[in-house]
Amino acid sequence: MADKKEILLEVKDLHVSFGRGKSLFEAVKGVNFNIYKGETFGLVGESGSGKTTIGRAIIRMYPTSGGEVIFNGQKINGKISKELDKDVIHNIQMIFQDPMASLNDRAKVSDIVKEGLINVQKGLSEKEQQERVDKALLDVGLLPEFASRFPHEFSGGQRQRIGIARALIMEPSFIIADEPISALDVSIRAQVLNLLSKLQQERNLTYLFIAHDLSVMRFISDRIAVIEHGKIVELAPTEKLFAHPLHPYTQALLSAIPMPNPDLEQNKKVLVYDESVHDYSSDKPEWIEIEEEHFILANKKEASEYRERLKTL
C-alpha cells in the first residue's frame, strides 16, 4: 500500500521552540508524518496544540529547532540555497484563516493576487501578469472584473476565494490550508469546501488541512493526525479514526463534535481528557503502528490494551 503512494512531504522528528533560556517554550515536540502526493492530510487539535506552528514551520515562516522537513526529496528547513527557497515558495502556498484580516485593505485585488508572482518570477510583462491574475480569479469562481476592486467590497466567502486565488497563481503542488473555513458563515463553508476539493481534483493538489473541527475533517481529509500539546497522539485514515479511535484524547475530541440531531445531542456524554490517565513514569510512550496505517502514541502496556480492544471490535 505505502509503496504505491509517492511521498511528497516528510516531516521527521520536527521540533519548534520559541524564546530561549528560562522563557523557552517548546511548541512542537518531535513530530513525524508523511504526506502523500494528491491526498488531503488533516491536522486536528485544540488551540495551543501546535497545529498552526507545524504548518508555518513547513512553509519556513517559523525556524525549526530540530528535525527535518523533506519536500520532494530535498531538505527545506534550516539554511537552504536561494534557488531552493524560490522553489519552495513556488511549490508550497498557504491559505489563511481569517479572510477579513489576511488581505491588505489598501491594495487592489489584482495587486494582492499577483504579489507573490511578481516577486518570484521577475520580468513578466504587464499583459502576462494581467492574464495570470484573470485566470486565477476565474479558477476560484470570481470574475476578472473584480481585479480592480478593493477587498472591502467583497463578502467573507469572496474574500476567502481571493485568498485561494493568491495561492493558486503560484501554481503550487502543495497547499497548507490553516483553518480556511472556520471564520466563514455556515452557508458559505460548503461553497469553499467544494471549491477546494474541485481544485484538488483538477490540479492534483496535495493539501495539509489544519482545523479544530473534526466534522469538517471527516468530509475533506484522507488521513487525520490528532495533535495534543505539540505531539501527535494518533494518526490514521479518516474512516479508521472515526470507526475506532483509541487514544483517550481522540475519543474526547470525537465526543465533543456537535451533531445536528437533537435526540443524540441532548443525551450525549462528553468525555473529558485527563492527561493523568497515562502513567509514563517508567514505561515511556512510543510511536507504534497498532494496525495497518493506524499509528498511536502509547507505551507498551497501553499498546497491548489497545490491541485487545481492536480485536473485540
Binding site: 470507526a243 475519543q251 470525537l254 465526543s255 451533531m259 440531531n261 450525549k268 456524554k269 468525555l271
Partner: peptide
C-alpha cells in the same frame, strides 16, 4: 434522523 454517534465511543 438516522444519524449515529461517531466513533462507537458512546
Amino acid at each position: 434522523k438516522n444519524m449515529e454517534r461517531v466513533g462507537g465511543v458512546l
